[in-house]
Design a protein around this nucleic acid. Structure first.
Lengths: 118, 118
DNA sequence: TGTTCATATGCACTTATGAGTATATGTATA
DNA sequence: TATACATATACTCATAAGTGCATATGAACA
């Protein structure tokens, strides 16, 4: 039962739920998530860390970036996300996040926002 | 999205998850839940209160007792519980709770444990 | 090998949450 | 209408969890 309550606890945070939703769509690196969600990098990293603790995501380094993808072996989680997707229009924030996925290339190149200032 | 995170938060507590699981099986009054789950009455009442806040349960007084039943209009919650039930053997605590439902009559009559001492 | 940069972690602070106990509420019944 | 009893709420305490910021880590590359 602890597996269940831990799963629900990790999903009970808005940021983590947004991250999970995006990773359900496609594999993404940290800076893409930071860009798409427009949130501080440590916040994203901590969210990913908790998801990793529960073995819900898998990370893989590719050159400079660490990519995360959602593991698909948790039936309960799969069901939940499918339920969300089926009625995604009820969750404008999540829907908008998914929409912004199309701009993700924008963030891979300009991962460090300071580089824009130079 | 807050509706989702609130739902997950309320399910992230073991007691509340046990209560929800039992109410999914059948309508129950507070003292039956106390008896079957063998937990302090205020703890059960508080769990029910949070579930009521989210409109997940409905209460109805019948004579001396207040009965709670699970509302079935939350698709996400329905999906979650069905997912749990499908693999109930993975959650021995919940399975055992359901098993103890057959003894629930024992608790309706002896709702107040002090009466046993007299 | 030193520097850059993407990512992770640590820390201080504030707020949220659960546990346990005591007590309040309110209905039913004597 | 007074009492009993089922249920709800209040209060205190300890702990957990999220936030923001600073800094550490560690791989890539010059």
């Amino acid at each position: 039962m602890d597996q269940l309550t831990s799963l629900f606890k990790v999903l009970s945070d808005g940021t983590r739920l947004r991250v999970v939703t995006l990773l359900y769509m496609e594999e993404l690196c940290v800076c893409e998530l930071v860009g798409v969600l427009d949130l501080p990098q440590p916040k994203i990293s901590k969210s990913l860390s908790k998801l990793r603790d529960l073995n819900l995501v898998q990370d893989e380094r590719k050159e400079k970036f660490v990519f995360y993808r959602l593991k698909r072996d948790n039936e309960i989680l799969n069901g939940i996300i499918e339920g969300i997707m089926k009625n995604i229009h009820e969750y404008p924030q999540l829907q908008q996040d998914i929409g912004r996925l199309s701009e993700k290339e924008k963030y891979l190149d300009q991962c460090n926002p300071l580089s824009i200032l130079e």
